Lab assay of single mutants.
Amino acid sequence: EQLARLKREFNENRYLTERRRQQLSSELGLNEAQIKIWFQNERA
């Protein structure tokens, strides 16, 4: 579920704002660094 949600977010926007990253962190139970790194890896 977390992965599917991250992929949906990535398809909508390849870059997250700090606020959006905080929201996802709270909703998915991941820390902000994990989300940031995931997005960086997807863009690579």
Rank of each mutant, 00 (worst) to 15 (best):
Q2N: 10
L6T: 02
N41T: 10
A33P: 01
A33E: 15
R19I: 14
F39P: 03
L16C: 06
S26T: 14
N11A: 14
E27D: 09
G29H: 05
N11L: 14
K7I: 12
E27C: 08
L3E: 10
E32D: 07
N41K: 11
W38K: 02
R20E: 09
R43K: 09
R20F: 07
K36G: 12
A33Y: 12
F39D: 04
N41W: 08
L16W: 04
E32W: 06
R5F: 05
F10C: 10
S26P: 01
F39N: 01
T17P: 07
F10T: 01
Q22R: 12
Q2E: 06
L3S: 04
E42H: 08
I37C: 14
E9L: 07
R14V: 03
A4K: 07
A44V: 10
R19S: 14
E27T: 03
E18Y: 05
G29A: 04
Q22E: 09
A44C: 14
Y15P: 05
G29S: 04
E32Q: 06
L28S: 02
N11V: 08
R20S: 07
Y15H: 13
Q23S: 07
E18T: 14
Y15Q: 08
R19P: 11
R21G: 13
T17I: 02
R21D: 03
R43A: 13
L6G: 02
Q2S: 09
G29E: 05
L28D: 00
R20T: 09
A33S: 10
E12T: 07
S25W: 03
N41H: 10
F10G: 01
I35Y: 00
Q22M: 12
I35E: 01
F10R: 01
R21I: 15
R21E: 08
W38L: 04
T17N: 12
N13W: 04
N31R: 06
Y15G: 06
E1N: 08
E12C: 13
A33N: 13
A4N: 09
L30C: 10
S26Y: 13
G29L: 04
L24A: 02
R21F: 12
A44T: 08
R5D: 03
N41V: 07
A4I: 09
E9T: 02
E18N: 12
Q2G: 05
I37M: 10
L6D: 02
W38P: 02
R21M: 15
L3A: 05
E9A: 13
K36L: 15
R14K: 13
S25D: 00
F39S: 00
N41R: 10
G29I: 02
K7T: 08
L16R: 02
R8F: 10
E12K: 14
L3K: 07
R14L: 00
R8L: 10
R8G: 06
E18H: 12
R19H: 14
E18S: 10
R14D: 09
E27Y: 03
L28Y: 01
L24W: 01
Q34Y: 15
F39Q: 02
E42V: 07
S25N: 01
Q23N: 09
L3V: 09
S26M: 15
E18A: 14
A44L: 14
L28K: 00
R21P: 02
L16T: 02
R5Q: 09
G29R: 02
Q22N: 09
Q40M: 08
K7Q: 11
I37Y: 07
R21H: 05
W38Y: 07
R19D: 15
R8C: 12
L6A: 03
Q34F: 15
R14Y: 05
E18M: 07
Q22V: 13
R20I: 12
N31Q: 10
E18I: 10
L28T: 12
E9N: 02
L30G: 00
L30R: 00
T17F: 00
I35V: 08
N11C: 15
G29T: 02
Q40T: 07
E27L: 08
R8D: 10
R20Q: 13
G29N: 08
L24T: 00
W38D: 03
E9P: 01
S26Q: 14
T17Q: 04
N11P: 02
E42K: 03
E32M: 09
T17R: 03
L28W: 02
I35H: 00
N11H: 12
L24V: 02
E32Y: 04
E27R: 01
T17E: 06
L3G: 02
I37D: 14
E42F: 10
A33I: 11
E42L: 09
Q23G: 04
Y15N: 11
R19V: 15
R5A: 11
W38A: 03
W38V: 03
T17S: 14
N31S: 15
R20M: 13
I35M: 03
A4S: 07
S25G: 07
E1M: 05
